[in-house]
Amino acid sequence: MTPPELHDHTRSPRVYLGLIRDWTPPALLAAAAIALWEGLVWMLDVQRWLLPAPSVIVRELVSSGGLLIDHAATTLTEVLLGFALAAAAGILLAAAVASSRLLERSIYPFIIASQTIPYIAIAPLLLVWVGPEITSKVIVVALISFFPIVVNLVDGLRSTDREVVDVLRTLGANRAQLFLKLHVHAAVPYFMSGLKVAAVTSVIGAVVGEWVGAQAGLGWLMKVSGPQFQTPRVFAAIVVLSAIAIILFLVIAGIEKWLLRRYRRNSR
């Protein structure tokens, strides 16, 4: 329905000006911080095993590129599998909690209690239970990530005004129809918020899992590089990890924007 010229403004110079305005301050801040870091390291002659200069880290990123990519692939696999597991479990749990007060009262306390478990303590046990392969890491990722998904989705499934529910009831909707035609749609913005948080925590989960016991992965690489005084490599791994988390976040934010294009208020 919308005439095509209305879409063209996304490519107009004004939008580029807007992008420049949005991104210039953080870019300048980052550049200043990196320059300060670089300058201080050279001026104070800090040993590179103690704190490598940014230029050293960049050089490490290039020279160990292949190694970093190999380990990043392992970590990314753990993150994606754990994330998918968390999303699936989160959807099931949230649907159960939102569908009945009895289930809510019985399940919700355990969901909250699960977040008080120190994963660093349980990760070695997982290693014993399921072996040193990728599975233990996937489980840690899922355990950390399902919580924001469940909590947000439960809120979302409950976010509908009673009056809107009443409108559909007077139109003859049964419980299943209310769930599928109303609650699920109303929950989408909340669900996507939960996924964005989970995207970041899932990377942390993978590192925790690898730290405790693994044969590969960026977390493992950091763990073995540190004691060998290969501090530039530790920092390079952190850069790659951050990049993974940011990209994952941006991908989900993009999907969110696409899904919420019809909701107006919730899409920014």
Binding site: D161, E163, V164, D166, V167, L168, T170, L171, G172, A173, Q177, K181, L182, H185, V188, R262, Y263, R264, R265
Partner: peptide
């Protein structure tokens, strides 16, 4: 399901078009 009811607020579903909002009773 036997009595039509309209409120002071429109209470339309924001993710549905006017057509999709209008037909929801028939859909149900």
């Amino acid at each position: 399901g036997r009595i039509a009811y309209m409120h002071q607020q429109d209470l339309l579903l924001p993710w549905r078009t006017v057509l999709e909002n209008g037909r929801i009773g028939l859909e149900l």
